[in-house]
């Protein structure tokens, strides 16, 4: 499906899900749309419905109340869809590993393809992550 991936890489539509974050990563993602970083010049835009999404951005350490909703949401996204985990929370749970309300294994809830670590990751790091994704899609 590499021809499909190449078409996809020209203009990625992104849907943002926050699953129990502290909202810092979410604000840095929104910062990417503002005039200083301006992600729209790469053809990347944020969409309002998951059915239009090519890439899902997940932020936050997924807590147990949100996990079933996240699974359902992932099932609604038309495949193929790529999942990017933004921040240290989806990568390793950050400092919340001792809590009673956290899922033990995030990959079982939603399979993540690309991690962008950082607390929060700088906008430049996020742009580099996206560029890596585009490179992989282009083969």
């Amino acid at each position: 499906m590499s021809w499909y991936n190449k078409r996809l890489a020209k203009s990625i539509w992104v849907f943002h899900i926050s699953a129990s974050p502290c909202n810092n990563c979410d604000i840095e993602i929104l910062d990417l749309l503002t005039p200083k970083y301006d992600l729209e010049r790469f053809g990347i835009k944020l969409v309002g419905s998951i059915r239009h999404a090519d890439v899902l951005l997940v932020s936050g350490v997924i807590n147990q109340k949100v996990a079933p909703k996240l699974k359902y949401l992932y099932s609604q996204a038309p495949k193929p869809v790529f999942v990017v985990g933004v921040g240290t929370c989806p990568a390793s749970g950050c400092c919340f590993n001792d809590s009673y309300n956290i899922t033990a294994n995030r990959e079982e809830v939603i399979p993540i393809d690309l991690y962008i670590p950082g607390c929060p990751p700088k906008p430049e790091a996020m742009i580099e992550g996206v560029a890596k994704l585009v490179e992989v899609l282009n083969g």
Binding site: Q64, N101, N105
Partner: peptide
């Protein structure tokens, strides 16, 4: 709540810490 957590701050609570809960 999907896991029916009851009174997590009591000494004799039924919640388990992350290592033993299944996702």
């Amino acid at each position: 709540h999907p896991k029916e957590i009851k009174t997590p701050w009591r000494f004799n609570t039924n919640v388990q810490l992350r290592g033993s809960n299944n996702g």
